[in-house]
Design a protein around this nucleic acid. Structure first.
Lengths: 252, 252
DNA sequence: CGCGGTTTTGAGAATCCTCAAAACCAGTGG
DNA sequence: CCACTGGTTTTGAGGATTCTCAAAACCGCG
């Protein structure tokens, strides 16, 4: 039950040269906010694929913003049943729950090599005191996570297996596209069918049969140990999902 | 699709005489914070049982803290399938998502007569500027809602029907007890089995059969159009749930 | 007494699960 | 180059869970 504290890499990305911030999805920052964030950031952390970033039960001294890579948040039942709660990708703030409320009540694992900006939990109060705009941004991010969970809950509770799978993949695809994870090529989502099963609340076998239907309808591909989306509109239609709004979001 | 704007009742509970704040579950406030909250509060709103407090798709100008009564948050699919996301009870802040991010993406309905403190969305920025401690509290509340949703998601995805039902009732019971909704008597939860079904993601029929098992084991009663908890420990044991932590929480 | 909302029961059907094994595939070491 | 390994995907089959449809029972209220 010990939190991973991998190599704190050199600071390859000073905030002024943040590769994420120029993306159109992120709201613009005051120079002065940027300067503060730069002092708020304590370093960078690289986490390799499969490793734990945060562990349930721990009292992490840090919170992180994802610079690059993929991960997921999950919870376990005592007998090992796993539920994936959400996926994390560039721009996401992770560990806020633990920072604000104390002990972590979920874990986070890397799906690919993950590069993180490291912040200190104790600095959070200072941020709230000196930069109300950033404090508001953090609340925005928390509310945004809440929205995603609401939609996920709707999915698990009331959508059929096929709708659920379509929703999940369309959702991940939309989020990934919004932060430019595609480059030019179609987004390749680095997950196994076991991950999908643990997200949808289905068994691995039934998940496979469900994904197979999506493949037969030429909505997705499964290849190179991951999922490639062919027809996002088709997926959304099956799920009855509107898609993400196109509002801009903060980046802390 | 119009948001309910019922009678704005006289201010029966000035913040200085808030019936909630003295409860041990809530953290103490600086007198100066209390004074601010008192100006932040714009009035009170009474909503009768069954009425809508907030409606998905609306752009509400207000957010609320529950003074007394019960309600629930939910989302609908186009064809009418309903998923209840969480229940709201005294001390809960509702409408934050909409206030921070824009349009509401879920609805809130009253389960009993509901008395609300009314705040204005536009005042929120001012609060963040002048009272970082309160801003932090609001983030705390958002993180807390996120936690509850995480646990709910785990339940829907990975618990059996019986475990899910036990978890739900134990969870509601724990929250209600924490804010003194019991008085001396056992808590009476004012929900129908249809609400339970829409929370657990089950059909009404199967929900009935599942609840029946909990009744046979003498863990709960169903009476007077609601659920009475007999054996909270027994419910927690079935669900494999630790219970709420006993940390204090903010009240805005 | 009649009404609408809620709870209960029964029964057959659809969905989803578990168990089990095969196929596939990338990486590793001989 | 090939055999071996572990992880992942695929397929089949029987069984458990959960669903829908339908109707009855119950209950507070006008």
């Amino acid at each position: 039950m010990t939190e991973r504290q991998g190599p704190r890499t050199a600071r390859r990305y000073p905030c002024e040269k943040c590769p994420l911030r120029p993306l159109p999805i992120f709201r613009e920052f005051e120079p002065q906010e940027l300067a503060f964030i730069s002092t708020f950031k304590k370093g960078e952390l690289a986490v390799e694929r499969g490793a734990a970033v945060l562990v349930e039960g721990n009292n992490s001294a840090h919170l992180y913003t994802v610079l690059s890579g993929w991960g997921f948040r999950y919870k376990l039942l005592e007998d090992g049943r796993r539920q994936i709660l959400n996926y994390v990708m560039p721009g996401d703030l992770i560990g806020l729950q633990g920072s604000v409320m104390g002990e972590m009540q979920h874990s986070v694992e890397a799906l690919s090599e993950l590069l993180l900006c490291v912040f200190e939990r104790d600095s959070l109060h200072g941020l709230y005191r000196s930069h109300p705009g950033l404090a508001y941004d953090i609340t925005w991010l928390a509310a945004s996570e809440e929205r995603m969970l609401d939609e996920n809950l709707l999915s698990l509770g009331r959508r059929t297996a096929l709708e659920r799978a379509a929703y999940l993949i369309a959702f991940i695809h939309a989020r990934a596209s919004a932060v430019g994870l595609n480059g030019k090529k179609p987004v390749q989502i680095p997950i196994t069918q076991q991950h999908v099963a643990d997200t949808l609340g289905l068994s691995l076998v039934h998940t496979n049969k469900t994904l197979r239907k999506l493949m037969e309808r030429k909505l997705i591909h499964w290849r190179d140990g991951g999922c490639a989306v062919i027809d996002p509109d088709g997926l959304r239609a099956i799920a009855g999902w509107e898609g993400l709004g196109e509002s801009r979001r903060p980046l802390v």
